[in-house]
């Protein structure tokens, strides 16, 4: 298995390199640049600034320098838009924030979703099932950009129990609303997938065998049905983990958390090449690692999988 992990990581290097080259070229293909503005700068000034950031070099040279600095100095370069800040700084500041409430949202969505789904499947066609299914559908229908304002309206403006924004070093009061806003829709999907997966597993032949053996319901569900039930959930969780980290731009916006999602989107709008590429590489690496973790988790759930 160690060999498998090494092999996967080796394959990941060209994948990420390809990702960088593709995003780099696509950014440069689009007309305009970080220093184009409505009131054009005098040509000499523009040329000066571009020379300072190396934009006057041929594309291949820019790309080479970029790679060289990353590999040798682990330096993702200066931001083109935010003066005196490097990409390393921006990521170091925003990523821990995104990671904190993203992971919490991920955990909340997974735990509540799986529990709801299992409860619904075990009490199929009872009020527990209908209740869980309604919650699931409602949650799924509320994306975080809807949940954000609703939560602020309710808990901050109306009830006045929780702060409506800010980070404040990640104190729990500041975490609650962003985590809820981010997790609900994923929780709904996870509940739905768990429920249908468990219903299918409970109909399978080996569950019939377990029942024929005279095992109590608890043993059947936990020992026999649980692992196969969670297989499809696991494959959904991998991408979800990356989404909660990347897709948090609305949460950053509504709750002024200062996470990385906002930097990602604004860098694309302002053509901040360096920040955009830096964050892309970060998310790319994250995706590769999460996919690897998912595949490794599979082996624990299904012994048929060998590496």
């Amino acid at each position: 298995m160690l060999i498998y992990v090494i092999r996967r990581l080796l394959v990941a290097i060209p994948t990420i390199a390809l990702l960088v080259v593709a995003s780099f070229l696509m950014m440069h293909l689009a007309p305009g640049g970080p220093f184009t503005s409505e009131r054009p700068l005098p040509p000499e000034v523009l040329a000066n600034i571009e020379a300072q950031y190396g934009l006057d070099q041929p594309l291949w040279k820019q790309l080479w320098d970029y790679f060289y600095n990353i590999v040798v100095h682990f330096d993702f370069g200066p931001s083109f838009v935010q003066k005196d800040r490097t990409v390393n700084d921006i990521i170091a500041q925003g990523f821990p924030i995104s990671l904190t409430y993203g992971s919490l949202a991920f955990l909340a969505a997974t735990i509540i979703g799986v529990v709801l789904g299992i409860a619904a499947a075990i009490r199929h066609n009872s009020w527990v099932d209908y209740f869980a299914v309604s919650i699931g559908i409602a949650a799924q229908a509320l994306p975080n950009f809807i949940m954000g304002p609703i939560l602020i309206l309710t808990f901050t403006l109306w009830l006045g129990v929780l702060p409506g924004g800010g980070w404040n070093g990640g104190q729990w009061e500041y975490l609650v609303l962003p985590v809820i806003a981010l997790s609900t829709s994923y929780m709904g999907s996870i509940a739905r997938i768990t429920r249908s997966s468990m219903l299918e597993v409970m109909n399978s032949n080996f569950i019939r065998t377990a029942r024929a053996k005279g095992l109590p319901a608890r043993a059947i569900i936990w020992r026999h049905a649980m692992k196969p039930t969670l297989l499809p959930v696991i494959s959904y969780l991998g991408p979800v983990f990356v989404y909660v980290l990347t897709g948090s731009v609305f949460v950053d916006l509504y709750f002024s958390t200062g996470g990385l999602g906002q930097s990602f989107v604004s860098s694309a709008l302002t053509r901040d090449y360096a920040v955009l590429l830096g964050v892309t590489i970060l998310y790319g690496t994250l995706t590769v690692l999460v996919n690897l973790a998912t595949d490794l988790a599979y082996a624990w759930f299904d012994p048929k999988i060998r590496y």
């Binding site: 399978s204 032949n205 080996f206 019939r208 065998t209 377990a210 024929a212 020992r223 026999h224 692992k227 196969p228 759930f301 299904d302 012994p303 048929k304």
Partner: peptide
């Protein structure tokens, strides 16, 4: 005791 038709699916795969 009971045994069934399809021994491929009648045993729990992860135990």
């Amino acid at each position: 005791g009971m045994i069934f038709q399809d021994p491929l699916t009648a045993l729990t795969p992860h135990l």
